[in-house]
Design a protein around this nucleic acid. Structure first.
Lengths: 347, 347
DNA sequence: CCCTATAAATGGAACGTTCCAATAAATCAA
DNA sequence: TTGATTTATTGGAACGTTCCATTTATAGGG
């Protein structure tokens, strides 16, 4: 049970009465080896409890079969789903994805990226932590390692990005609210250090402008991208002189918080105040009332990112095109018409 | 931008005008090197864009600084939280945890374990996939690699386990329901191929027996451990001649499903039918009504598992004690008294 | 029986580190 | 001055693979 010296291909060779080269070939499934010999070797491998040493192999072979995925928040089911989508693709390509979680901490992110590189990964898929500095990926680019960003984009960077069409999603959601007769709209949650925030807010603003909502009838409240943040946003909004009657939320978590806060005040989400979420996580459909949300197909984006990465590795390039995923407004029960205005059109 | 040959310590040595040994010592932060020399070397390292090759190093150094965590379902926030707890501990110990997701697939699990071992991890923390065969970890044990299980236990295995006190949790929850006056109780969800299932069901049964509930007044419905499973369980139960008035659910997801299904039938969870969950995921407190659930402190268990692992690595042993984590019944709004029986005691 | 072609197996150098033993330089006690 | 001690640096073997260039065995053609 003690840690006996590990078996190597030399031990196998001795056991099987062949040379180490032969063992190596068997391990690689070469057809240069006579089947009976291969069998003998495989038996020896089993007998000595051999564990392949990929580190030693990579010393000669240049590139490994593992890619690293660095995720900013694993407890957000949205990212977890994306990770699962990627795994599906990588698995069938014989690539092993190792996941690491930065918990939105750029320092931690730096450490993990370093570690992954030292480990000799073949590529990196990263959903950058909030507050990542633009230079954080210079070393990786210098090393010529394939890398793609998912979900989030960095201000000035040539690294390919796989992300949903945030602008359009926000536009659609906002138009939906306006179509329901709402005239005073809010955008809740998120903070301006995220590019995603500007994309979604931009869609919101453009839709308002295009559909005749004056800027002074819109309200933007920054806040944490969590239930707690949503609660805070709603409190702020309802404290205003002329509060909004509907809100587009930065993401579903914020929307859940808003609905919770409404209930706590005796208001019914949907009927008394319309709310739209973003991301369409699984829970959205199970809430009471079910949440209208912008579906971004996180698993699909994960798959896409994985495919792009495989292509990059295969073609030994470090460049790839951005991919902006289609979004889809899923209408449920959280957006009634504006009650105060004389009945808007009921869709 | 093309993949130039990677820089090695020899390149650094040449650049800095020292020997490779000196560079190696600098990399390890040895105090045998004159500070000025170290500075010179560090500059060279920066200049050539050097990336440390841990695979090569491990060839001599025996043990690495990475440990693998193999999780059965990353999209379950419960496991994600546990993973995050572990990460906290490992980070401060300078150990890098790589996470891999089996998605409850034993074959996938086997592949991942193999890969992790080949990568030369220092230890393994595993939450086994459903249907894992007892022999799946023989190779790992043979290799003398430290391994601990979390949350789930395998039928006959000497591998240390870090898990919540499922039996007691179920007992407490059941006693709570009985205390509320319920006399016909159900256990919903889960399947008997999981040891956890037997532990929780066992607690349920013992509490019933100890507190005077006849076996024929209890109902056990197996089912998926998901919302969907919960919905199905409730349908089955309400179709019976004398349906139960309360249920302990295998986990929170099942409980959510049960509440959903109750609503769909026009019944109010808590008032018309009492339901208790298990795990106490974050959403439990945000549901309507807030779910009474057995809190298992997943992050804490994760931390504990990480500590045990560190200890094992440090003391070069492959043995450790099991750790059964305390549980805590969190009473919220999903369990009113039995209405049909003449008012039980109101807690 | 020799020559060539094919199949099967092998030895050895190389990969990028670590670490031991050895060297070189500087300091000190006598 | 000499030898001993300390400080700073270095060469070289070793780690477990891969893969090229060889060798050995087997078969086929004349």
């Amino acid at each position: 049970m003690a840690s006996r010296p590990k078996a190597t291909i030399l031990d196998i060779a001795r056991e099987a009465g062949v040379s180490k080269s032969t063992v190596s070939l068997v391990l690689q499934g070469s057809d240069l080896i006579r089947p009976e010999t291969a069998l003998k070797v495989r038996k020896a491998i089993e007998d000595v409890g051999y564990v392949y040493n990929r580190g030693a192999a990579n010393l000669r072979k240049a590139h490994s079969n593992v890619i690293g995925m660095v995720i900013n928040d694993l407890t957000n089911p949205f990212f977890a789903e994306m990770a699962v989508g990627m795994e599906r693709v990588f698995q069938s390509a014989g690539v092993v994805p190792f996941i690491a979680n930065t918990a939105e901490n750029p320092v931690r992110q730096e450490e993990l990226l370093k570690s992954l590189m030292e480990q000799g990964v073949a590529g990196l898929i990263v959903s950058p932590a909030r507050g990542t500095t633009p230079g954080a990926f210079r070393r990786i680019e210098m090393a010529g390692l394939p890398i793609v960003f998912t979900m989030r984009r960095l201000p000035e960077s040539r690294i390919p990005v796989i992300a949903p069409d945030n602008h359009r999603g926000a536009w659609l959601a906002t138009a939906h609210l306006i179509g329901k007769g709402h005239r005073r709209l809010a955008f809740f949650g998120g903070s301006s250090d995220l590019v995603v925030y500007h994309e979604r807010l931009g869609g919101f603003r453009e839709a308002c402008e295009a559909l005749g909502i004056a800027k002074r009838d819109t309200l933007v409240v920054e806040g944490e991208t969590s239930r707690k943040g949503g609660i805070a946003c709603l409190e702020t909004a309802l404290a205003m002189a002329e509060p909004p009657t509907a809100a587009l939320c930065f993401n579903d978590a914020v929307a859940f918080g808003v609905m919770l806060a409404l209930r706590k005040r005796g208001l019914e989400p949907g009927a008394d105040f319309a709310v739209v979420g973003f991301d369409d996580v699984i829970e959205a459909q199970h809430y009471m009332p079910a949440l209208t949300s912008v579906a971004v197909d996180s698993a699909g984006l994960g798959e896409r990112a994985a495919h792009v990465m495989l292509k990059m590795i295969q073609s030994r390039t470090t460049r790839a095109e951005d991919h902006i995923g289609a979004v889809n407004l899923v209408i449920r029960d959280s957006c009634g018409p504006d009650r105060r205005a004389g009945m808007g059109d009921a869709a």
